[in-house]
Amino acid sequence: MGSSRFSSELIRSSTDLVLLSLLRDNSMYGYEILMTLADRGNGDFEFKQGTLYPVLYRLEREGWIRAKWEIPPKGKKRKVYSLTAEGRKVQRVRAEEWARFTRSVNAILEECDHEEGKS
């Protein structure tokens, strides 16, 4: 995943959670997902459009999201993704896990900074 701001490892490890969270409240199509990511991530969370599709298809295969073709009265045929009940559960679990993880990392970093300040 080509990121302009965060390392690709960091983006990769959080992609599933980010996409599931985006789709939790709204159904979106591919390009819309990319735009929303860039918007909500303050432009820092970006990855190449081409890398989005394998991730979406994988989440669909896992049964966490479902895809549906929509043809608006005016406009192009679009494949719209939404969260399944299973995906909702996975999102909740992963979000909690992520919160615990970041709290833990932050605590370590703060402690290290504190010790560095003392010395």
């Binding site: 459009q49 192009k76 045929k77 679009r78 494949k79």
Partner: peptide, 9 residues
């Protein structure tokens, strides 16, 4: 079709 649609967007 999906990728073309997003590409044109």
């Amino acid at each position: 079709t999906e990728i073309e649609s997003d590409l044109l967007d």
